[in-house]
Computed example of a mutant assay.
Amino acid sequence: MNKTALITGASSGIGLELCKIFARSNYNLVMVSQNTERLEKAKAIVLKENNKVKIINIAKNLSGPLSADEIFNYTEKNLIQIDVLVNNAGVQVYGDFHQADIDETLNMMYLNMLSLTKLTGLYVKGMVKRGEGKILNLGSTGSFQPCPLNSVYCASKAFVLHFSEGIREELKGTGVTVTTLCPGATNTNFAKRANIENIKLFRGKLLSPGDVAEIGYKALMNNKSVVVTGMSNKVMTWIVRFIPRNVVTKLGMNMMKK
């Protein structure tokens, strides 16, 4: 019997590429995203990779407080065992914090942190009971340092990294693993939606979402704790540990300017 992976943010970008990889590896899928039409198009794309897998679409906006429970209740009611949970959904609010819409910022915090935490909490219990399971959480190179004009986003991704590393240690010996994938700037529509296409961070050659997804999938299957995509990103996240914090924030401001 095929195992099942639940992937959020599944209709585009890294999430869609992860769905394609899991389908090629004969996983059934629960694809979660907020737009029904885009999900249907994504499902058709994934089925071209492997038309023998079963795919269920769930259209939910994970910035809502009840969405995680509704997803979990649906899979429980329909006896769908989730063997792999991929918390990929995320959003970004760019610009000065004091000028941003506070409700948009709070929605971002809920999506990036609280829904991720709740979905993990709901599904990890069953994984521990069965003695096996895998969780892949999407962090960012922003998980490793504060970044002006991206302050709350990076803080939310720092939460993802610290939360994931912490529970990974707690889960040792249970058969359940936790991996954090930390991409840098990637060639997806994420930057366009966040209105950050023209910042310095997105200049130059970017990794494709397919490349990032492959790196994340391999890290998950090899039980890696944290993986940063791209050599320059790996160097950057290592160097910032040794640079004074006030210098780190100045460098961050320079990279995030348009």
Rank of each mutant, 00 (worst) to 15 (best):
Y217P: 07
I56E: 13
K3S: 12
R241F: 07
E170I: 06
S115R: 01
S11E: 11
G210R: 00
T237S: 04
Y123S: 05
K192Y: 11
L29G: 06
Y153V: 04
K205M: 10
S151D: 08
K43H: 11
H162P: 02
K172L: 13
S156C: 05
N137W: 06
T4K: 10
N28I: 09
F190H: 05
N198G: 13
E17I: 01
S156I: 07
V240E: 01
P65F: 11
I45K: 15
R193C: 01
V93S: 02
N78E: 13
K3R: 15
Y110A: 07
K134S: 12
Y217C: 00
L106K: 14
V248P: 01
K205W: 00
L181M: 05
V160S: 01
G95I: 10
T229K: 04
G95N: 02
L29V: 05
A23D: 03
I135E: 10
V30K: 00
T36W: 07
Y74A: 04
L201E: 15
H162V: 10
I14G: 02
K258Y: 12
V124N: 04
E40N: 13
A158V: 00
Y94L: 00
A5S: 08
K125V: 14
S164W: 00
D103P: 00
G173L: 03
G204D: 06
R168I: 04
R168Y: 11
L201N: 11
S143N: 02
T105L: 13
A191Q: 10
P183I: 01
T141C: 01
T249S: 12
N254S: 14
N223A: 13
N73G: 03
R38F: 11
V227T: 11
K200R: 15
A194G: 06
K234E: 10
I102K: 14
A185I: 09
R203F: 11
A213F: 10
Q81M: 11
L85D: 01
I199F: 07
N233P: 04
G64F: 14
A100D: 11
P148N: 02
S12Q: 15
V84A: 08
M221K: 14
K60C: 11
E40Y: 06
L206F: 09
T177C: 10
M31R: 02
A68C: 06
T8C: 08
G133I: 00
N51T: 02
V240D: 00
E40Q: 12
L119P: 00
Q99K: 15
C182L: 01
N28K: 02
